[in-house]
Amino acid sequence: MWYLQVYAYYDPVAFQPGEEIRLTPIVGAMPEPILAEDVTGIDSDSSPIRFRACFTTPLSLAMLSETYVAYTGAEPLVAPGWFDCFDAMAIGTALERGEALAFLSEPDIHPGVDRVVAVFPDGRAFAWHQLNDSFKD
């Protein structure tokens, strides 16, 4: 049972080159690809909130903030221990302290679920799915 919960339901994500990570622009409604490098991710068909990804971006926080929709209430979800590039506690703490910024990647990527991206000043970035307000009501 432990193996099933921790390993069996996750698969590596196959990202399309040039379409790995998208953000929603302030002007316009369609998410657009951003520069992302060393993208690695996991997902599962068993739940729409099991997606996690780690990557780097050369884009500055200033540029991202002026161009893309900020995401309020970002709460990264814990990843399996073996996916060690994603530390939900560290990401969450950095967001709370303003040491990283969260952006809307894709709204309603599944019904009631948004894809969120957090970016640090040094270019480290992380993505996950979380329930949005439409699902929480």
Rank of each mutant, 00 (worst) to 15 (best):
H129N: 15
I109S: 10
V6D: 14
F103N: 02
L4M: 10
T72W: 04
W128R: 00
F86D: 08
I91E: 01
A90T: 11
D11T: 12
T67L: 06
G41I: 01
P33I: 12
Y10F: 14
E99I: 00
G98W: 03
F15Y: 05
R124D: 06
E106Y: 00
S65V: 07
E32N: 06
G81E: 13
A127Y: 07
V69S: 03
L104K: 02
L77V: 15
T24C: 11
V113H: 04
G81P: 01
T56D: 02
P121N: 04
R115M: 06
G81M: 13
W128P: 00
V6Y: 08
L101E: 05
T67E: 09
A53Y: 05
D38Y: 02
A125I: 01
P80M: 15
Q130F: 06
A127S: 10
C85I: 02
V13A: 10
L104D: 03
V78P: 11
M30G: 05
P17K: 12
I109V: 12
W128M: 08
C85P: 12
T93P: 00
D84T: 08
G18W: 02
P31Y: 08
P111W: 08
P12E: 14
A102H: 06
R52M: 08
R50S: 15
F55V: 06
Q130I: 00
Y68M: 12
G98C: 01
F51A: 13
A94P: 02
E19Y: 06
